[in-house]
């Protein structure tokens, strides 16, 4: 564990925790969505696909604003969480998780969907003739074949959450150790003209982002297009 006394370390630790939790949740929520999007012939495919992709084009201020209102005590999500006895989500770690899951959703769903698409019908039919059930097929055939997509989705989901700023600024409340992530901490330093501290964290982010993308390209050199 990291001591809370060091603001930079506590911000880094918080950011990593947020990104890890968000990525895990995105795999749990995003995999079925991506699978459905890849397989369905329903007319709902286009609207759902567009919904998932929305955070790619919406400014974070829009997402942050709606989340702040919706998760607040008068909002629908806020009413729901209060009814569950959880209180309201803004200014909490779990509030940031909700925001990050929405905001990073396309970065996980789209690579997964592409990977599932690329598998095609054939392996599924073969599995079916070998009497594999749908769950069995999914875990022993689909997921191994979609491995590059899984890696890409995981790396992008994690990295995009680490790089999140606007949504966190709007629903976070800048609480040390709870909602003050690295990007907000950097903003704080820059605004207060503490350029030396800002440089350390900013350079760290730069190196981190480069390494992450490098890993992505090393693992997945040609995007495995078909």
């Amino acid at each position: 564990m990291v001591t809370i006394s060091d603001p930079a370390l506590s911000a880094i630790w918080l950011t990593l925790r947020l990104a890890t939790v968000t990525t895990l949740l995105l795999f749990i929520i995003g995999t079925p969505i991506a699978w459905w999007l890849a397989r369905t012939r329903s007319w709902l495919k286009a609207p759902v696909g567009a919904l998932v992709a929305l955070p790619l084009v919406l400014p974070p201020t829009v997402i942050g604003f709606y989340l702040l209102v919706a998760m607040g005590p008068q909002g629908p999500i806020g009413q729901f969480t209060q009814a569950l006895g959880l209180g309201v989500l803004p200014f909490t770690f779990w509030g940031l998780v909700v925001g990050s899951v929405l905001y990073s959703m396309p970065f996980v769903v789209q690579p997964l969907q592409n990977a599932f698409d690329a598998i095609g019908e054939r392996p599924l039919e073969v599995a079916a003739t070998l009497r594999a059930g749908p769950w069995d097929t999914f875990f022993t055939v689909v997921l191994p074949l979609a491995r590059p997509g899984l890696i890409t989705a995981g790396i992008l989901g994690f990295a995009h959450t680490v790089g999140e700023f606007g949504v966190v600024l709007m629903i976070g409340g800048n609480i040390p150790g709870k909602t003050r992530v690295v990007s907000v901490q950097i903003y704080d330093h820059v605004e207060a003209l503490e350029y030396a501290q800002a440089h350390w964290l900013a350079a760290g982010m730069l190196v981190f982002s480069f390494v992450v993308l490098l890993l992505l390209y090393v693992f997945n050199p040609n995007g495995r297009r078909k």
């Binding site: 702040l68 209102v69 998760m71 607040g72 005590p73 008068q74 806020g78 309201v88 803004p90 200014f91 709007m170 409340g173």
Partner: peptide, 11 residues
């Protein structure tokens, strides 16, 4: 923004 946190009822 402080005012907005309070006006939205979150604080």
């Amino acid at each position: 923004q402080t005012h907005q946190f309070i006006a939205s009822g979150n604080a």
